[in-house]
Structures are given as structure tokens and as C-alpha cells.
Design a protein around this nucleic acid. Structure first.
Length: 635
DNA sequence: AAAAAAC
């Protein structure tokens, strides 16, 4: 059998590192406060490790005092040297001044552009943290690192801390409070948290911190063009990959950590060029990643951190083989030799079982109610026959425009079942004076991105989407999610409506229901009831008649948020109660809350009250409801 | 039966 590039790589890692470089120090022998030493540029100089950090930090310090990367690097004559030694990662991991468009400095000047601009208010990047204060949490596993209350308690290093401030994150969201200490301790993690509650940061911070600690551990033989990222983040859609990349770039600003994004539909050559400039963290969709690995341009052999976002989707029937191939059949280190973190808002127990193959002695954390979105989203269900859907939609949109801000339409995301249906609805809406644009997987990537941008900017305040847009996308100011066609799976419903009501803000979700959605009736009714929503009588009647729940596929674990290792069926009480009070605690009674969950304040109460605002069910209930709710969605 | 994900 011939020696493949990956054999070569694996072989090379067993050899001593190259003599000219500081010797490799295995992670367990390293100074634990490697990251914190970043916070003091004067404290280096006694060990190999420290020297390296010192070198890096001095360079970073140079930057901090305002010189441009280009002139600086050129002046020192370092550019070429680094470039020559590009594949030696102890050096490579230093920002390379010759590649100006990878320079943190470059990003520095553009940081404000990178930032998600949230101009609603100044309350911490627009995140209504208080809305999260009283959320119950369940954590399972052995020796669980305790949660933190502030970012300051976590030793992420000064650079990352500065970025947290730049992002105006004043304090961690619940998932961040729990997941970050677990991840920082190097533990494997399965995390289940409500949509829009800060999962991306929860896995990015520890990964960036881990990369900073382990920078010198990579090795890359000069004779290949293979790159060896030390962290991999997988996403189910291209747009989500792009979004995670943008976020991660902000979080790692001026740390020297190199992040590259790779997904299909965009020229691979440019992505290769980005890789050649060095990569610590690779954000990718599965297909393009496999392609790159097959071409020998990326090796997973040095992966220390693996994060899978929307992990339940990534392990469902369509995606599972690809993910298994990447995680189990490439040269990725085995569970235990790498850190694996799986995140999603929903996590059916059946999928948890599959996922546990990837994990080693992991901790399960669930924040918020099981598979729930939030109380901040007002959910409304209308009984509408297929043939009446279009007119009904236009009535809603018309009503929204009438009641909206200066006659402008609030951003409205309309989900349909098929790509064809998305195009058709886009056409119908557009030709009836509603500025709409469609996004789906049959469009070329540029059209997809254009659609998203046009929607985000409000140019076309109606986005007609397939499930390509159902997960993870953070689109500020989506006031209304309309399920024109309901999904088959309650989890997809949760993710779809989660495009609104993000970051603690309120939102509205409307669904068009008819006999074809019968199988969803029971789980939908239960989900709504649990979220304190008004459930139409007719929906309850459908729910009683239907077989409901998840059916056999998920073993009846309807709300898909328990640690499957706990053996709970999901048919019993599905509030988290083990660590935090009981169901009655959740909503408004903060007095019985655990100390670690401070009393809710006015903001939360107001939001919850708005969400609990009763609806007048039936077709005539619209006008009044939209007035209040859509307005509050915009604040 | 549909959507997503490589060229």
C-alpha cells in the first residue's frame, strides 16, 4: 500500500519536531496559565513556552500601539522569513505581515463593520440578558465544572476579553455560563439551548482560547500543501457557516488566531488561498470539507477541538453518513484525543444516541425548557386550507404594513416546504406589491447571499425561504416568522420560529395549519401550551385525535431535550426540575429561584407579559393582535 | 416526498 499524505503526516508527528524550533511541549506538561500570561506582556522569558508566548505577545503589543501591520512587518524583514517557514506552525501561527488582508490590524480598522450592529439600544449589544436570568438548567455527567456568572471569572485571556467587550457582551448568557467552563476544562459537551441564546460564542470562546494555548503543537511537513487546522466547526448550511465565521473573527480579533471558512458554491481556489495563509480554526460545511480533504489540502490529523453546530440536523438521515465520514473515517483524532462539542436548540434522544459515538465522558447541558424556543415568541396558529394560504398571507402582510413603522413592513420570514413553492410565492408577493425575495438551495450561492442581504437590509422585507434558512441564522429585527407550510418535525418548527425572538427580544410566529399537518398537531399543541401560548380549541381537538408526538422514530421523546442517558421517556414531566426548582418557578416567580439565577426584572416580566398576551383565535383575530405584537417586535 | 450538502 502506498503511503498517503495522511500517513506521511501521521508519521511525521511521531518524529521529534524540527531542531531549529522550540521543542514541543505536550499539552499536559504545559503551563496551565498559558492564556492568562497573554494578559501581561511583561511576564515572559523563563521557559521555551513562555518565550514563544513572549515573542508573540510582543508583536501583538507592537500592534496595539497603532502601527500598521504592513509597515511593521516589512521593516523587520520578518515577512519573508515567516512566509518561508509557513508550514512550521510555531512560526506560522504568528500573524504574517506580508499577508495584509489576514492581518488582525486590518480587521482592527474594520471592527465596527464586522460587528453586528444593533442600534435598538445600548444594553449590551442589544441583547436583553435579563430575559435569560430565570431560565432553568439541567446538567448531567461526571465532575461538572461549575457555571460562572461573569466573563471575568473565565480565564479567556486579555485579548479575548477585549473582544467580548467590543462585542458589548456584558455578561454571559445561560448557555455560555455553563458551557464555557465545561469547554475550558477540556470536557466533551452536548449542549441544548434555546434558539438565539448565544451558542456560537459558547463554543467559539473556548476554542479560541484553546488554540491560543496550543499554538505550537501543530506540525506540517514542508513538502505538502496540506494544512492542519487545530479546530473544526461544522455547519449544515453555507450561510450559517459564513455567519459563524464572521462571529469567530470578531471573537479572535487581534489574537493572531487564523480562521478560514470553506463551503460549496463559492470558488474553491480562493478558499485554498485562504488556507495557505494559515488556519487554526476551520469553519466548514460537510461537502466542501470532504472535497478538500480528498484533495489532500486539509488534514484533520491535528484537530484538538471539534464543534458541530445544529448537531441534531447534522446527524439526521440526510447528513449522518457525511458527518461520520468526516469524524470517524478521516484522520481526525479519536474521541478523548480531541475535544468534541455538539450544540443545538433541539436534540432528539435518538440523535443523542448517535452523537454519543463522537463523544467521550461528555457532559450534557440543557438550558431553557426542553426543545423550546422561548416565551418571548408569541405563537399563533391559523386553520387555513392550502388554496386560501396566499390570500391569507397577503392579508397579514397588508395588515402589518398598515400598522407598522411608517408604513414600512416589519421583516417577515415566510417558510415554505419546497424550493418551487418558494419561487412561486416570491413571484405572487412581488406582483402584488409586497417586496419579497426567495432563498433556497436551487439558487446559486450569489443569489442566496444577495437574497439574505436584501432581506437583512430591509430592501425586500419579506424573505420566502425553505429550510435552508431555518437554522442558526441570526437576522436582527425579524419581527414575524410565518410558517406558510408547516414542517413535518416539531424540532424544525422550533428552529424556524427561533429566527425571531432572538437575544431576548420578543417576536411573533404564525403558522398555517390544515388537515395535512395532522401529525404535527399533538406536539405543536403541547409545545405551545408549554410556552404559555394560547392553543386554539380546534388544535387541541386535532391533538387528541392524532397519534401525535414524534411517533416511533424518536421513541416518543417529544421535546428532545433530556440527556438520553438519564433514560427519561419524555412522556413525563418535561420541565427541568433536577437542579432548579420546578415548573412553577419558570415563568414569573423569581422568588423561588436558585441564587445563581437572579430575580427577573421588569424587562423580562414585560416581555413575558407581552408574550402571554392572549390572542383572539380564529381568522378575525388578526388585526388587533398584529398591531400590538408586531409593534413590540420592533420595540 | 422535501430540504440541505461538492465539483
Amino acid at each position: 500500500m502506498t503511503m498517503t499524505w495522511s500517513d506521511a503526516v501521521n508519521g511525521s508527528t511521531q518524529k521529534p519536531t524540527r531542531p531549529a524550533r522550540p521543542s514541543y511541549v505536550p499539552p499536559h506538561l504545559r503551563n496551565d496559565d498559558g492564556v492568562s500570561s497573554f494578559s501581561n506582556v511583561n511576564s515572559y522569558g523563563f521557559s521555551t513556552e513562555s518565550t514563544q508566548y513572549g515573542f508573540r505577545s510582543n508583536r501583538i503589543a507592537d500592534r496595539q500601539y497603532g502601527r500598521t501591520g504592513t509597515s511593521r512587518g516589512g521593516g523587520r524583514g520578518r515577512g519573508r522569513g515567516l512566509r518561508r517557514g509557513r508550514h512550521d506552525n510555531a512560526w506560522d501561527s504568528n500573524p504574517n505581515p506580508t499577508f495584509t488582508n489576514q492581518e488582525p490590524f486590518d480587521i482592527s480598522e474594520k471592527f465596527d463593520e464586522l460587528e453586528v450592529v444593533d442600534d435598538d439600544n445600548n444594553d449590551g449589544g442589544g441583547i436583553n440578558f435579563d430575559a435569560y436570568d430565570d431560565i432553568p438548567v439541567e446538567a448531567n455527567g461526571s465532575e461538572i465544572p461549575p457555571p460562572v456568572k461573569t466573563f471575568a471569572e473565565i480565564d479567556l485571556g486579555e485579548r479575548v476579553n477585549n473582544n467580548i467587550k467590543r462585542c458589548k457582551y456584558v455578561k454571559p448568557t445561560p448557555i455560555q455560563r455553563h458551557a464555557i467552563p465545561i469547554a475550558m476544562a477540556g470536557r466533551d459537551l452536548m449542549a441544548c439551548a434555546q434558539t438565539g441564546s448565544g451558542k456560537t460564542a459558547a463554543f467559539c470562546f473556548p476554542i479560541i482560547s484553546g488554540v491560543l494555548k496550543n499554538r505550537c503543537s501543530q506540525s506540517n511537513p514542508r513538502f505538502t500543501r496540506t494544512v492542519f487546522p487545530s479546530a473544526l466547526i461544522l455547519s449544515p448550511t453555507r450561510e450559517l457557516a459564513g455567519q459563524i465565521y464572521e462571529e469567530a473573527k470578531k471573537f479572535s480579533f487581534q489574537t493572531g488566531v487564523k480562521i478560514v471558512v470553506a463551503y460549496g458554491g463559492a470558488p474553491i481556489s480562493q478558499q485554498f488561498r485562504n488556507l495557505e495563509r494559515g488556519v487554526d480554526i476551520l469553519v466548514a460545511t460537510p461537502g466542501r470539507l470532504v472535497d478538500m480533504i480528498d484533495r489532500g489540502r486539509v488534514s484533520l490529523g491535528m484537530i484538538k477541538h471539534l464543534a458541530i453546530d445544529e448537531a441534531d440536523r447534522m446527524l439526521d438521515m440526510g447528513f449522518e453518513p457525511q458527518i461520520r465520514r468526516i469524524v470517524e473515517q478521516m484522520d481526525m483524532p479519536k474521541p478523548g484525543a480531541r475535544q468534541t462539542m455538539l450544540f443545538s436548540a433541539t436534540f432528539p434522544s435518538e440523535i443523542q444516541r448517535l452523537a454519543s459515538d463522537f463523544l467521550s465522558n461528555y457532559i450534557f447541558v440543557a438550558v431553557g425548557r426542553v426543545g423550546s424556543s422561548t416565551d418571548l415568541i408569541v405563537q399563533k396558529i391559523d386553520y387555513i386550507q392550502d388554496m386560501d394560504k396566499r390570500n391569507h398571507l397577503m392579508e397579514i402582510l397588508h395588515s402589518q404594513r398598515k400598522n407598522g413603522n411608517c408604513g414600512k413592513l416589519a421583516l417577515t420570514l415566510v417558510f415554505v416546504e419546497t424550493k418551487k413553492g418558494a419561487d412561486a410565492l416570491e413571484y405572487i408577493l412581488s406582483s402584488n406589491g409586497f417586496p419579497a425575495i426567495a432563498i433556497h438551495g436551487d439558487k446559486v450561492q450569489m443569489e442566496r447571499e444577495r437574497a439574505l442581504k436584501s432581506f437583512k437590509s430591509g430592501t425586500t422585507p419579506i424573505l420566502v425561504a425553505t429550510d435552508v434558512a431555518s437554522r442558526g441564522l441570526d437576522i436582527p429585527h425579524v419581527a414575524h416568522v410565518i410558517n406558510f407550510d408547516l414542517p413535518k418535525d416539531i424540532d424544525d418548527y422550533v428552529h424556524r420560529i427561533g429566527r425571531t425572538g432572538r437575544a431576548g427580544k420578543s417576536g411573533l410566529a404564525t403558522a398555517f395549519f390544515n388537515d395535512k399537518n395532522m401529525s404535527l398537531a399533538k406536539s405543536l399543541a403541547e409545545l405551545m401550551k408549554e410556552a404559555n401560548q394560547e392553543v386554539p380549541i380546534w388544535l387541541n381537538q386535532y391533538a387528541e385525535r392524532s397519534i401525535g408526538g414524534r411517533g416511533q422514530r424518536y421513541g416518543g421523546n417529544k421535546f428532545s431535550g433530556y440527556d438520553f442517558r438519564s433514560g427519561r421517556s419524555g412522556n413525563e414531566d418535561y420541565y427541568y426540575s433536577s437542579s432548579h426548582g420546578n415548573a412553577a418557578d419558570y415563568n414569573l416567580d423569581a422568588s423561588t429561584s436558585d441564587v445563581s439565577y437572579p430575580a427577573c426584572n421588569e424587562t423580562y416580566s414585560a416581555a413575558a407579559a407581552a408574550a402571554a398576551e392572549p390572542y383572539i383565535p380564529g381568522p378575525c383575530g388578526y388585526q388587533e393582535s398584529y398591531e400590538t405584537i408586531v409593534a413590540s417586535g420592533w420595540e
